[in-house]
């Protein structure tokens, strides 16, 4: 993607609490009109990073600029230009969706047509409802609507699909892509690998308060030596040196009856299948998968990714 103007610059951000170092020197940039993702397990520091940029917390050291404005001294100005969807959003009781949108717009000194905005997020028929009566997906869409009342330049989404069923998640992905097409820069956190791969132009992989690597999902995956994962089931234990002649095989795991391995050169796959047949090794459920961000995470951290860290 062509790199446009930098809208967010974060340099060596650190955040320390009494006995915890939540951020250990985080640096990245976000470009205009991209969808930038911060991917990592729970406790990686994703939300803390976002909350510092949004002005909810202050960093211990390091700098952060949003649209050229400093997050510490110009936080009030930043807030006028950004929209925020927090990880969990609750609202004032006894107010309808319409009334809440009018309220949020007033906080930005704006007047809006709440029905038009509700229509934009597919909730026009729930204008008189209260938030409690909405489904998970509807609530997330409404939360994003409250962040759009003032037409922000940058939208922050903190785990926008957590708790949603697969269909609602897919719908939310499409919705986020639509927002981005309207020239809104989106910064989002997620702990779902698939979500980051599908949505983001660039992804920063984060763990234990540090960014491990940052690039487009495709380039992160391409940076791996082992791009393919082969797995299959066998009827009997395989000979010890079965794969010795296949030079690109690595990380072989034989957990009978399942066999998994990383294959650096996909051209060797026919040779492996022929040898299985030649040696009368019965096999089934042969599966070849391309590497994913999860493999990138494993390569960077040495441990497998768990969405519940």
């Amino acid at each position: 993607m062509v790199k446009n103007e930098k809208v967010i610059t974060v340099k060596d951000l650190k955040k320390e609490y009494k006995d915890v170092q939540a951020l250990r020197g985080v640096s990245f940039e976000v470009y205009r009109n991209e969808i930038f993702g911060i991917l990592g397990p729970n406790g990686a520091g994703k939300t803390t990073t976002l909350e510092i940029i949004e002005g909810l917390k202050q960093q211990t050291s390091g700098s952060c600029h949003v649209l050229g404005l400093d997050n510490l001294s110009q936080s009030a100005l930043i807030k006028k230009k950004i929209g925020v969807q927090l990880q969990s959003s609750e609202y004032l009781n006894y107010l309808s969706l319409e009334e809440l949108l009018v309220l949020f717009a007033s906080l930005y000194k704006e007047k809006i047509d709440p029905l038009a905005l509700l229509k934009h997020v597919g909730l026009e028929d729930r204008a008189k409802s209260v938030v409690k009566s909405l489904s998970g997906g509807q609530k997330q869409r409404f939360t994003i609507a409250t962040a759009l009342v003032h037409k922000p330049e940058i939208l922050f989404l903190d785990e926008p699909t957590t708790g949603l069923d697969p269909q609602a998640r897919r719908e939310m992905w499409d919705f986020i892509k639509e927002l981005n097409k309207q020239n809104i820069t989106i910064v989002m956190t997620t702990h779902y690998m698939e979500e980051a791969e599908y949505l983001c132009n660039r992804v920063a992989i984060m763990d234990s308060g540090k960014i491990l690597k940052m690039d487009s999902p495709e380039d992160l995956i391409a940076s791996l030596d082992r791009l393919y994962k082969l797995s299959f089931f066998v009827e009997k234990q395989m000979p010890k040196d079965f794969f010795a002649e296949f030079k690109s095989v690595e990380n072989l795991k034989e957990e009978y009856p399942k066999v998994t391995l990383d294959l650096g050169d996909v051209e060797e796959l026919p040779g492996i299948v022929q040898k299985l047949k030649r040696t009368n090794t019965e096999y089934k459920f042969l599966n070849l998968k391309t590497a994913k961000l999860e493999d990138v995470y494993l390569h960077l951290t040495g441990h497998s990714y768990s969405e519940e860290s």
Binding site: K79, K80, L86, S88
Partner: peptide, 15 residues
């Protein structure tokens, strides 16, 4: 409002 996170939601606005 604090316990439910409503105040936090309001604090990300220019209020």
């Amino acid at each position: 409002l604090k316990a439910r996170g409503v105040i936090k939601r309001l604090l990300v606005t220019p209020l």
